[in-house]
Design a protein around this nucleic acid. Sequence first.
DNA 1: TCTCGATAAATCGGCCGTGA
DNA 2: TCACGGCCGATTTATCGAGA
Length: 446
Amino acid sequence: MNNRKKSKLSAKEILIRNRERKRLQKNETSRKSYGKLYKNKESETKTYSQTINARKKREQREKSKKINERKLKNKMNVRKHRGKKNVELSSMSLVVPEGSNVFKNRMEKARALRKFKEGLPKSPSKRCAVISTYLARRSPRSPTIANLKHSVSPVEMAVVADIQEIIKSTKLKRSKNARSVMNSVTASISGENLANSRGKIKLCKNLGLPARRVAGGQRIRSRILKSESSAWALTQQKTRKDSISEETKKTVYNFWLSDGISHPTGNKSDIKRERLGPNLYTSHMTHVLEKTQTDAYLDFVAKYPEIKIGQRAFEKLRPFFVRPASEKDRNTCCCRYHVEANLVFKACMKFRKSCDRETDSQESDYPVFEKMSDLIHITLCPKVNGFYRKNCLDRKCSLCGVGNFKLSPNESQSSSTVEWQKYEYITEKSKGKNVRRRLTLIKKEN
DNA sequence: TCTCGATAAATCGGCCGTGA
DNA sequence: TCACGGCCGATTTATCGAGA
């Protein structure tokens, strides 16, 4: 049974259990050994010789011990004082002397310097040559060299403080001016040198900025400084594994423009502009969504289950000229021609329905259309890039036309007539002898 | 033409995972 | 350890449209 129980434990659980056992064993052993030691110390009793010489010797040792302690204490105080003085002196000068904190005291530094001088050639030119060669051959990335070179002057500190002030007063503002200021500041402080030194996070902490804003400044800087081809190469740099691929972005972009998701408003004045830069704009005919963005997203997920993308990212990839439908987009034209065309369409579909009662209207070759646009669709060639060709719309195309709409045998042979309506002007007598013309809906029969 | 409220759009920044 | 980017809620700004 026990074996069975043991076999149920996972490898990780067994490992943890064994570690715990070892820890307990170790504790026990150390506790026992400490107990032994403690016992021995307790049982020890010191016995000193009480002879005159021995006593004198003990007093002498005690005395010298005290003197040594006093000397050591004094020495420490002096060192402490000198160290403090050195720091004060160095902070008064513009640049901190290189390596001031490397030696424990001045004497140690002086001795090292003397030793170094003795080892160098006697002629001044040779000495310089040796020193410069030595320093040049050391790796510039060596932390020791880097530390030696590191020095912050009060001037530099003042500049940093000024930048901090600008950032503090501007970073939360969203006005154009404030943004321009922040863009200038972040672009100025994030160059290649900063990138190479890998100190962005430290700088950000110091300036009170999130790293992302400095990175944004870096992008602005790159955009400005790099040529067009270089900027393009920059966008192609390696990205994380799960980043949205260019192909997916293109698929999403095209999906937003596909049938059933959005369509052009049809109004020439519906032009959407996007600002690309100062005095630089791009424009495109406005498209209106046929459903909510959430519905569009769900449709996309259903159509492309293999593409993993969040709703926000999906929405972010929406073309700038695609906008949700508003109430004004639902307005339909009420002009005479559109109303008449709609009346004729409805009358014809009603007639077809009455002729083909027994056949399934959706599956038959002669369907009963619900919308006028469906009927128009079959009389035109397929769309190219989302639009019908002008030739087809002008009815100049030899491949399409009204001939594509065919009557069913029942419709052709039917003896009944189609009732439809149209507007016509009729003259009627008004008060007195005046006659006036009035646009009236007249019933027709064919 | 101006004002004001509603709404859309843009941006920021925290959190988190991943790459170098 | 640092840099980057996706995700997402919060916040601010820009724009639109109605009314005076």
